[in-house]
């Protein structure tokens, strides 16, 4: 019995909802994993903030060109039809509403779609990168995350306690336990692990889960 999805499984689930022909930005780190699980037969064009559309997988070790990197500063390759552009054009693609999907990680997501994912508060060096831009403009802003923190606290909350990345910006959350859309400032439950009751899921969620339509079983293969 699956008690929760692995990160790879969360990434797999998020990848299933990326439509053929979509222009997609994957955040640094965990979200980059989504690319691995693109369903066969779908063409997806990946955007990276530092100025590439349609980059491909990492090159073999020793084959890197360090002027050909993604936003995480990892070496990438180019797909046929790739293009380069400067940073202002890159963020015009972001803010101008040209991306179909942005997928990010999160510390907290609030029921109204507020996202906190850039700062854990004072005492560290703050760094925001492109996150505050990415949450505005993409047609779907998706979060992939464990459902709870390492201490077991809910990451889906009524109101974020950490500094915000954006206000009311998240459209869908893919967690280790559920798939949740944010509609009219409420968490609407779409899918949950079959072994878990709504009550059990609610107990580890920091705001009310609304049932509006069928709740499907969240079934993900071993990946």
């Amino acid at each position: 019995m699956t008690t929760k999805l692995s990160n790879a499984q969360i990434a797999w689930r998020a990848a299933q909802d990326i439509q053929d022909g979509a222009y997609v930005n994957l955040g640094i780190g965990f979200p980059e994993m989504v690319a691995k699980f693109k369903p066969d037969g779908r063409e997806v064009i990946y955007h990276t903030e530092n100025g590439i559309l349609d980059f491909g997988e990492a090159p073999a070790a020793g084959e890197e060109d360090w002027d050909l990197i993604n936003a995480g500063k990892k070496a990438v390759t180019l797909n046929p039809g790739a293009s380069f552009f400067h940073h202002a054009d890159s963020f015009a693609m972001v803010r101008g509403g040209h991306l179909d999907v942005a997928i990010l990680g999160a510390y907290e997501v609030a029921e109204n779609g507020d996202l906190a994912n850039w700062s854990t508060g004072p005492g560290s060096v703050p760094a925001v990168g492109g996150a505050m831009d990415l949450v505005h403009g993409a047609k779907r802003v998706c979060v992939i995350t464990d459902h709870v923190t390492k201490k077991g606290e809910p990451k889906l909350v009524k109101k974020c306690s950490l500094p915000l990345t954006g206000v009311g910006c998240v459209t869908t959350v893919y967690t280790s336990l559920a798939v949740i859309d944010i509609v009219n400032s409420r968490f609407v439950l779409r899918e949950k692990l079959p072994g878990m009751s709504v009550e059990e899921l609610q107990a580890v969620t920091g705001a009310e889960l609304v049932i509006d339509g069928p709740v499907k079983d969240l079934i993900v293969p071993e990946v």
């Binding site: 400067h86 972001v94 803010r95 925001v128 990168g129 505050m132 915000l164 954006g166 206000v167």
Partner: peptide, 27 residues
């Protein structure tokens, strides 16, 4: 924010003293 940084630089180069962006609203 990265996109704001790029646009602030572009604006300077284009002679535009200020602009409005959705990035960072409410933060």
């Amino acid at each position: 924010p990265q996109g704001t940084l790029a646009e602030r630089i572009r604006a300077a180069g284009a002679g535009i003293p200020a602009f409005y962006t959705p990035s960072s609203y409410g933060t």
